[in-house]
Design a protein around this nucleic acid. Structure first.
Length: 356
DNA sequence: TAAACGTGGAA
DNA sequence: TTTCCAAGTTT
């Protein structure tokens, strides 16, 4: 039994020693040298980074993190923000429920916790947008609590270290038990970040760099040559194709006819172009009677669970009131960067067509 | 338990 | 071009 020969204490020590030298330099991180001196990060910044990092790469998060923290430096500032401003600032980052819950959470922390994030797992778990992983990460990283983080990185590292072939997500309880058994009682925040750094930089999904891994000695998958095929995952369902039509109307004063999407469902809370629901066929549903012109090119976009072909219609509109549930956005208030990516793609096509 | 929920970069 | 995947949560 390989696992019974593993000395847990030395494993975490080895990883922490590696982290002391190889910790990634991240905008929200307190480097290990300072952390060892007892310096703690701002819980607000750790929370912000963790929510942004859910299912999202560090590279994609960096600029958003900089803009959010510059615009709203404290949780009270964010709590006082307009909903539309927060959604617009989040545009392009995806999973927009995160932005809605971010704002809800900021308001709860401000109003019910005096602007201080709770430090314990159970209290954090009650806050909007904070699930088991984020509660552990925030508790460990911001407050140095003894919590075990189990994200995609840790799942992969544990599956390989112990050569676990049970497919995800069924393997999660076993992976969590393994991860918890390795978590040391000291330097909890550094350790949590160290395991994730290891997964992000060495124990990567494809072609892991086992030769330079601090855990190459005890790693069961490396010994058996199975590392690259772990963790196993249950096969994904194919994505169906959906069709849609959007209408980009520009009034003579330059204002665009738009709608704020409902808070639930796809792109919830985001600005978008009017149109019927997307489905098996193109449904023409012009929001206003006008001389709508069909663009020759479609916008193509892939969401988590379907592909989309989006036809675009454009028209010059006369001065008029917006229909119910819609609004004209004046030129000075319109920013293409406030749009979710699929809507921005349609807008870019319309802009290109207008110049022709 | 499974499905819904975005996006961009890498291979 | 297509598939995979990234510091998951909610319903």
């Amino acid at each position: 039994m390989i696992e019974s020969s593993v000395n847990h204490e030395k494993l975490s020590d080895g990883l922490l020693a590696w982290y002391d030298v190889h910790a990634r330099d991240l905008p929200w991180r307190v480097p290990p040298a300072q952390s060892r001196d007892g310096v703690r990060p701002d819980p607000y910044l750790i929370w912000m980074s963790e929510v942004m990092l859910q299912q999202t790469t560090v590279a994609a998060v960096k600029d958003y993190f900089a803009r959010f923290t510059a615009r709203w430096p404290r949780v009270e500032d964010l709590a006082a923000a307009e909903d539309g401003d927060v959604m617009g600032e989040w545009a392009g980052l995806g999973y927009y429920a995160r932005a809605r819950n971010l704002l809800k959470c900021a308001r709860v922390v401000t109003a019910e916790h005096a602007g201080r994030f709770p430090s314990d797992h159970a209290a954090l778990l009650k806050l909007p947008g904070i699930g088991p992983y984020t509660a552990s990460a925030l508790s460990a990283i911001a407050f140095d609590r003894h919590e075990t983080v189990l994200d995609g990185n840790v799942e992969r590292v544990m599956a390989r270290l112990y050569d676990i072939h049970t497919p995800l997500p069924a393997a999660k309880p076993e992976l969590m038990a393994r991860a918890a058994a390795l978590t040391p009682p000291e330097r909890c925040g550094d350790y949590a970040q160290a395991v994730m750094d290891l997964g992000a930089t060495i124990c990567t999904p494809k072609s892991p760099a086992c030769g330079i891994c601090p855990w190459r000695g005890p790693c069961a998958a490396r010994a058996r040559g199975t590392a690259a095929q772990l963790p196993k995952k249950t096969p994904k369902k194919p994505k169906p194709l959906r069709l849609g039509v959007v209408y980009i109307g520009r009034r003579s004063d330059g204002a665009y006819l738009m709608e704020r999407r409902p808070d639930t469902g796809l792109l919830g809370g985001m600005l978008g172009w009017p149109g019927a629901v997307w489905g098996d066929e193109f449904i023409e549903a012009p929001p206003i009677k006008a001389d709508w012109r069909a663009l020759s090119e479609e916008a193509r976009h892939t969401f988590t669970h379907f592909h989309l072909r989006l036809a675009v219609r454009v028209a010059d509109l006369p001065m008029a009131q917006a229909p119910d549930e819609m609004q004209f956005i004046a030129p000075h208030a319109f920013r293409a960067s406030d749009l979710p990516t699929v809507m921005r793609k349609a807008f870019d096509l319309a802009l290109g067509a207008r110049k022709e």
